[in-house]
């Protein structure tokens, strides 16, 4: 007996929701206009592709691309986020892994790549690996310790995301306040920033001490601020667009994908 199909279908449905939300974020952000949406397009694209791939793995009827295509896609995504993490690490050191926002996406991409590369097809249905878990309970992953470690890291990031999303000291990406109030009003207010661009640049814990006991508070020259500020931080004017672009939405998608990915890794050990 394998895992009941209806349970896998529920997780597949959640992944379809994540895919739909990620697609909506891409449309609403209009990244081709080089606004704020351009800066987050890679993450939304990664979420979209991962969610589609996972839905197809969980339910055979939702399968879209052959495994080889997914191998290439997630290898590219892994390389892309690895580059960004390495770039962040050069700037801020190990904090790029603990507080950076590319590190979780790197882990997600690498875990997807591992799943597609390491899966072993059941002998009876060779060639149909990763084409739906229901009814194919013999699917397993090579190097199960890697699957276990990926699952642990994914769970760790999921727990951390949820803690930050709900924490009083957190703001910016994780701000619940940004969820409750209109983004255009809350983001600058939260940051106490002088411009929406500064507020939208992502906040740290307001005035919170770092682990070293100091507070991150370096004022860049105005000229630098002008150069780095996005030109069009609010490309969307509609309320629905603002809602779907709220940072907590992307984080929630990541939480849902982290749980689902960990589940898939564990049940294929």
């Amino acid at each position: 007996m394998t895992i009941p199909a209806w349970i896998l279908d529920i997780f597949a449905a959640v992944m379809l929701v994540v895919a739909a939300v990620s697609a909506a974020r891409l449309v609403a952000a209009r990244p081709w206009r080089r606004g704020r949406g351009a800066a987050t397009a890679d993450i939304d694209v990664a979420h979209l592709l991962m969610a589609i791939a996972m839905a197809g793995t969980l339910a055979a009827s939702l399968r879209t691309l052959p495994n080889d295509a997914w191998d290439v896609i997630f290898a590219a995504a892994t390389a892309w986020f690895a580059y960004h993490v390495a770039r962040d690490a050069r700037r801020v050191g190990i904090r790029a892994l603990s507080g950076g926002h590319c590190a979780p996406h790197l882990v997600h991409s690498a875990a997807m790549l591992y799943m597609f590369v390491a899966v072993t097809a059941p002998a009876a249905s060779a060639g149909s690996a990763m084409s739906g878990m229901a009814g194919s309970g013999m699917q397993t992953l090579r190097l199960p310790i890697v699957a276990f470690l990926f699952a642990l890291v994914l769970i760790g990031y999921t727990i951390w995301d949820l803690d930050q999303l709900s924490g009083p000291g957190a703001s910016g990406h994780y701000s619940l306040a940004a969820r409750i109030a209109p983004a255009g009003a809350v983001a600058p207010a939260l940051a106490g920033a002088e411009s929406p661009a500064a507020a939208f640049s992502g906040l740290t814990s307001a005035g919170s001490p770092t682990s070293a006991g100091s507070t991150v508070a370096t004022v860049p020259p105005p000229a630098e601020a002008d150069q780095t500020a996005p030109r069009d931080p609010y490309p969307v004017s509609s309320g629905a667009g603002r809602l779907v672009l709220a940072p907590w939405v992307a984080t929630s998608c990541r939480i849902a994908m982290g749980i689902t990915m960990a589940l898939m890794l564990i049940i294929m050990i």
Partner: peptide, 26 residues
């Protein structure tokens, strides 16, 4: 880069959700 804003709040400049390092409350 990070910048100070009124009220002692620190913000990171750059992408809202990617490529940035948030020093959230430890």
């Amino acid at each position: 880069s990070d910048m100070a804003v009124p009220g002692g709040r620190a913000v990171w400049r750059g992408r809202p959700d990617a490529g940035q390092v948030a020093t959230s409350a430890a």
